[in-house]
Design a protein around this nucleic acid. Sequence first.
DNA 1: TAGATTGTTAATCGATTAACAATC
DNA 2: TAGATTGTTAATCGATTAACAATC
Lengths: 209, 209
Amino acid sequence: MKLPGKTIERLSQYRRILLNCLNTGKTHIYSHELAEILGLTAVQVRRDIMLMGYSTSQKKGYDIHELIDVIGSILDTRKGQNVAVVGVGNLGRAITGYFMGKRSKLNIVATFDTDPSKVNRVIAGVNCYPVQQFDELIKDLNISIAILTVPPDHAASVAESLVISGIKGILNFTSVSLNISSHVYLEEYDMITSIEKVAYFVKKNNSVL
Amino acid sequence: MKLPGKTIERLSQYRRILLNCLNTGKTHIYSHELAEILGLTAVQVRRDIMLMGYSTSQKKGYDIHELIDVIGSILDTRKGQNVAVVGVGNLGRAITGYFMGKRSKLNIVATFDTDPSKVNRVIAGVNCYPVQQFDELIKDLNISIAILTVPPDHAASVAESLVISGIKGILNFTSVSLNISSHVYLEEYDMITSIEKVAYFVKKNNSVL
DNA sequence: TAGATTGTTAATCGATTAACAATC
DNA sequence: TAGATTGTTAATCGATTAACAATC
């Protein structure tokens, strides 16, 4: 089964909403409720759920527990996946801290940096190691995913070391586009681009009014 | 002229690359070079450039200066746009610091927080104000864009205040989906979703091999 | 039953790519 | 000229939405 990337993103969002709903004592949820919360259409929600191969016999909405489990069976692995944050600046710390609160099948098990004042300490609840120990620790700790938050001028070389060490996926927050082996799944996010996009549409909307 | 969102994102990326190229003394660039750097096709680059209404008479690549100017004429406003970062945690600081280095038409002119130990200080190079002063400062400083980096439980109410204060665009980094007036341009980014997407495709790739 | 909801196909919409003419 | 490149239309691909049957 191969689901589209856009559907995967939404499944992740559905799950977050559903987990929230559990706290309120709700047991079932309609497609139009999920849609409303996320600003989607109910059809799209139902279609995504259909693509997972799940369906409910009831017409009284989806059982929240069941839906969470089904999404988990798509997104998670049984044993979980280990993640490293590479580059412990403000952004690296933000991400690490963000994650540590969550119970999740994704575990940040190490952070890496070059700064001697950071290395070999616990930062945001996780051990920080010197980048020289990549290769060793990625194997020892069975890390398959790296979140890249190093300064731009280090991005390319660090990414290359990560690939050589056998990392399987990289989420790249640096402003540098990476050109790496296609065996490694790469997701890029550039916040400058996002904010420039917002600025463009703000400008456009204004000139329309 | 109404350009698609995806094109706008790429224009922002083209410009960043082009600015970099200037430092190397390069004066012209081929569509296939830009494409290569960003992992796109040359056709897509040329099409985006076409959509801007620009064309070059030369077959020796695009003049880098000209291209930067043309992109600027699309993305920028003459006087620039003022931006506020709302919520000065690690992420807010990361974003603020990230921006301050750049010469850009987007200026972070204020940050906001509730924490008394942060308020009325300069953080990452920008004044931090108490959230109570939103309304006043958004008008006084002519802030049209907010970057939302508050804790999840404050996201909805803070967003509402922002909308009431007359903000025109919000870039939402909280994990809460906002339901706000459609007059305000909203761009959402959820890093949990991104990392879960990477994890999914890592899992998939592995099971394929 | 009537009304609301789910499940699913077909149609539409939007974005990317293929193909190729024009030009240096 | 031959080869490389740009500019642009048409075709393709992928994602969303409309329409509607089925069911509680």
